[in-house]
Simulated scan of single mutants.
Amino acid sequence: MSSDHEIYQIAAQLAAENKTPTVALIKARLTQSLPLAKVIKGLQSWQNNPKIAETSTPEVKTPRKADENTLTLAEVESLIEQAITPLKAEIERLKAKIS
């Protein structure tokens, strides 16, 4: 997540909690240390357009954590093969019908 996006998100969270977003409150919630000027600029941008948190997109997506719902490559290939097997059979049937 970009630092600007994080600042916007924190400001929006604070506003949702009925707190006035301030530089100090934002700095306290940041996941990384940022220069004061960057936090001030981000807060000012958010104050000028509070919906910026909704419209801005993070620069870097966080990778998904592997869990029981994550499929391995072999499982995906197997599922694909199962899905296309009937299609292959249909193609062969149609080829035979044409011939």
Rank of each mutant, 00 (worst) to 15 (best):
W46D: 00
Q32T: 12
K38C: 08
A16M: 04
T62A: 08
L71N: 08
S3T: 13
A16L: 03
E54P: 11
I84W: 03
K95E: 08
E77R: 14
S3Y: 10
T70Y: 05
T62E: 14
A83Q: 10
T31V: 06
K65G: 05
D67Q: 05
E77C: 12
E17A: 09
A66Q: 15
E90S: 13
I80Y: 08
A89K: 15
I84P: 02
T85A: 11
E75I: 01
A24G: 10
P21V: 00
T85I: 06
I40Q: 12
K38W: 11
A12I: 01
R29S: 01
Q44I: 06
V60H: 15
P50M: 01
I10E: 00
T57H: 10
V39G: 00
Q44L: 11
L79M: 07
I52D: 01
Y8K: 02
L14D: 01
A53L: 01
E68S: 14
W46M: 01
V39L: 01
N18Y: 02
Q9Y: 07
A83T: 12
V76Y: 03
E68A: 13
P50D: 02
L87I: 06
K97L: 05
E54G: 13
V76F: 04
E92A: 08
E6T: 07
N48Q: 13
H5T: 05
L25G: 03
K27H: 07
P50Q: 02
K95H: 09
L73G: 12
H5K: 15
T70V: 11
T57P: 06
T22P: 04
L34H: 03
R29F: 02
E81P: 07
R29V: 03
E75A: 05
L30F: 01
L30C: 02
L34F: 02
A11I: 00
E77L: 06
D4V: 08
I7A: 00
L25M: 10
L79A: 07
Q32G: 07
A15Q: 02
L87P: 05
H5M: 04
Q9S: 12
K38V: 14
K19Y: 03
N18V: 02
T31H: 08
L34Y: 03
N69P: 09
E81W: 04
K51N: 15
E59S: 12
D4G: 05
T62K: 15
V76L: 04
S2G: 04
K95P: 10
A16W: 01
A53F: 00
H5E: 07
S78K: 13
I80Q: 08
D67R: 04
K27M: 09
K19W: 02
T20D: 09
N49I: 05
T22R: 05
Y8E: 00
K19A: 09
L30E: 00
Q47V: 03
Q13E: 07
T20K: 08
S45C: 13
